[in-house]
């Protein structure tokens, strides 16, 4: 892969993820911008929507398989599929294989496909001879490890190392970096009180860190944390980490007052 990635014309297919598509297009634009800067050709396959987690995690394996096979069929022709979300990447790279383990047609397909899928930050950290990030961003941030980025995509130090390349950026760590924020997909609406406890603790940790901005690689966590911080009247701003890396922070932070430009 490495050699091929050096090739300027390497094509990358972006799996936008449904949350980014609906609520935070900036994440996709930032991803595309940065990938292009690194010389890749980015394509956005048309027939995409969701990776199938809602069905899978609700126990509807049959439904999840239908979504998964559609995703595989649509993205199969690309060699690199980049996903700006740990949980969707985990779904596509790990859980598709589990889902199809007894399927005559897709067991092999999903296995091959799983090798192509990469979580965005992990991908960035592996680009060979990459020139350093040159974002003009200035400020103190804290980084929230989403559980799936951390445990399924294995992203931890990579995010920090990348962020440290940005000159004006200072990182302050959260006290409990390995603890979930309480999003958990449908969990947060099915068990709001427990989720509230978890996310409040995360917001408190974020505030205690002294950072102005909380970054993360998963929009689900970010909407959860931003939503709770907003409910508590906390100042902390939340952004997808790629917005800072790609120097695209002109859009308002998640859940904050809109700068209505368009």
């Amino acid at each position: 892969m490495n050699n091929e990635l050096k090739n300027k014309k390497t094509e990358i297919a972006l799996f936008v993820t449904c949350l980014v598509d609906l609520f935070r297009p900036s994440v996709a634009f930032a991803t595309i911008k940065l990938l292009k800067e690194y010389g890749y050709t980015v394509v956005v396959p048309k027939a995409q929507s969701c990776c199938g987690q809602p069905a899978y995690n609700s126990g509807d394996y049959e439904g999840a398989k239908k979504v998964a096979s559609a995703v595989i069929n649509e993205f199969d022709k690309y060699k690199n599929v980049i996903v700006p979300s740990g949980s969707c990447a985990g779904m596509m790279a790990k859980h598709y294989v589990d889902l199809f383990k007894d399927d005559p047609e897709f067991s092999k397909k999903s296995l091959i496909f799983s090798k192509k899928v990469q979580e965005l930050i992990s991908f960035l950290s592996k680009i060979p001879d990459r020139k350093k990030l040159h974002s003009n961003f200035k400020g103190t941030i804290t980084y929230h490890d989403s559980c799936s980025s951390l445990r399924e995509a294995g992203v931890k130090h990579q995010a920090r190392e990348l962020l440290q390349e940005i000159k004006g950026l200072k990182i302050k760590e959260l006290k409990h970096t390995e603890v979930c924020c309480g999003f958990g997909g449908t969990f947060c609406v099915k068990y709001p009180q427990i989720s509230e406890r978890m996310v409040s603790e995360k917001v408190a940790d974020a505030e205690a860190s002294g950072a102005e901005i909380l970054l993360s690689g998963d929009l689900g966590c970010l909407m959860n944390i931003a939503g709770r911080a907003s409910r508590e009247g906390k100042k902390i701003e939340c952004r997808h980490v790629i917005e800072v890396m790609a120097d695209m922070t002109s859009v308002s932070p998640i859940g904050k007052k809109m700068k209505r430009e368009k």
Binding site: V16, L22, E196, G227, S230, V251, M258
Partner: peptide, 15 residues
């Protein structure tokens, strides 16, 4: 929304 605010979408969908 019982326990947290819901961030508004940026505008149009990405796709």
């Amino acid at each position: 929304t019982s326990v947290r605010d819901f961030p508004a979408p940026e505008g149009k969908s990405f796709l």
